[in-house]
């Protein structure tokens, strides 16, 4: 064949191949076409064999074209392959679509008790203010529950905490307050002291929606040089801000606890109505949150800390009450019911 004939033949192969590839409907067909045109016995290969018959000068002219044609066919092949893959992929995607509104399945996480959640939250806030955790026993001697807390026998303040007595001994009670931990810590540790202590306490009171014979308190104690009432205010104001997640007004009202002096009750503006009055705050606009005060010098003397050198403050709050407030739980008994319908809400 002449150069011209060869060139015509090449162009013809190219247009046939491109047309055939465009018509192909599956990757299988494409493979067949590849063999038909580019295979060992393929059309293009056959045409190219004719190249050997050309002269040395003519060969490059046709060779250049031949390479071009081969490249174009290869490109067309891969383009079509790609097209077909996309088509097949789209078909598969359509076929595999599922109802994504069906509920998720498999292993579920357990629920954390709301009292744990709130205890953790309060604890973390005070960690941030440099407090650390301390623990004490739930059974206590009267010494720790009362005497060391400046509440001697026959003090009427003992009546305010209906105490459970136990078979462990005549002076062994179920602690009625977490303040016992203050004494246990100060007996062991010299100041500075900065501890918090959440825990279970007991009062012999009839069960109702607001009272349960056991509940949880959160105690805080800070002893250092130059501790003032203003620092107590600052510390607790920060706690209120962080716990409720907003700046709320607070007020400190004088109160009486045997183991602090001066003592105060801390009220916070109701976080739900911001003071305008609602059901949660009994339409008062304020919530009574906790009791606090400067540690009484008698308590410090009792544990061998010199009140002229050191001073400190203490505070205590009811975790159950804060939790009820936070989640709007209307009955303290839910906390101890083990009812999954309650537990699984948190």
């Amino acid at each position: 064949m002449s150069v011209a004939e060869l060139k015509t033949k090449l162009k013809q192969v190219e247009s046939e191949a491109v047309a055939a590839l465009a018509r192909a409907q599956s990757s299988q067909q494409l493979e067949e076409l590849r063999l038909e045109f580019l295979g060992q016995k393929g059309t293009l290969t056959t045409v190219l064999r004719g190249l050997g018959l050309l002269s040395k000068e003519e060969r490059p002219q046709v060779g250049e074209l031949a390479n071009l044609v081969k490249e174009r066919i290869v490109n067309a092949l891969s383009a079509r392959l790609n097209e077909l893959y996309q088509i097949e992929l789209n078909q598969r995607l359509a076929a595999e679509a599922i109802d994504i509104t069906l509920p998720g399945s498999g292993h579920s996480l357990g629920h954390v008790h709301p009292l744990t959640a709130v205890t953790t939250e309060i604890t973390n806030i005070f960690y941030g203010m440099g407090f650390t955790l301390a623990e004490g026993p739930e059974l206590e001697t009267e010494y720790y529950n009362f005497d060391a807390l400046n509440t001697p026998p026959d003090h009427p303040a003992r009546d305010e905490q209906d105490t459970f007595y136990t078979s462990a001994g005549p002076q062994v009670v179920l602690r009625s307050q977490t303040s016992t931990v203050q004494i246990r810590v100060m007996e062991k540790q010299k100041p500075p002291v900065r501890i918090i202590s959440p825990g279970r306490v007991y009062r012999n009171e009839e069960v109702n929606a607001r009272k349960y014979p056991l509940f949880h308190q959160f105690e805080g104690l800070l002893i250092d040089r130059n501790v003032t009432f203003g620092q107590l205010k600052g510390c607790l104001n920060e706690f209120i801000r962080l716990f409720f997640g907003k700046q709320l007004k607070t007020r400190f009202r004088p109160d009486f606890f045997p183991f602090t002096e001066p003592s105060a009750e801390l009220d916070s503006q109701c976080p739900f109505c911001l003071g305008s009055g609602c059901k949660t705050c009994g339409h008062r606009g304020w919530l009574e949150l906790l009791g606090c005060g400067m540690v009484d010098p008698n308590v410090l003397n009792g544990v061998g800390i010199d009140p002229e050198e050191w001073s400190g403050f203490a505070f205590g709050m009811g975790i159950d009450r804060l939790t009820m407030l936070k989640y709007g739980v209307n009955d303290i008994r839910h906390f101890f019911s083990s009812d999954l319908r309650f537990l699984q809400q948190f």
Partner: peptide, 28 residues
């Protein structure tokens, strides 16, 4: 200390200045 409490009470707890405790030791 009892007298100090009476002074605070009459002065008004809300009028006592607010501050923060100094950070004297890192907690355990």
């Amino acid at each position: 200390i009892d007298l100090i409490e009476e002074v605070c009470r009459l002065w008004g707890y809300d009028r006592l200045p607010i501050s923060m405790p100094a950070y004297t030791a890192a907690p355990d």
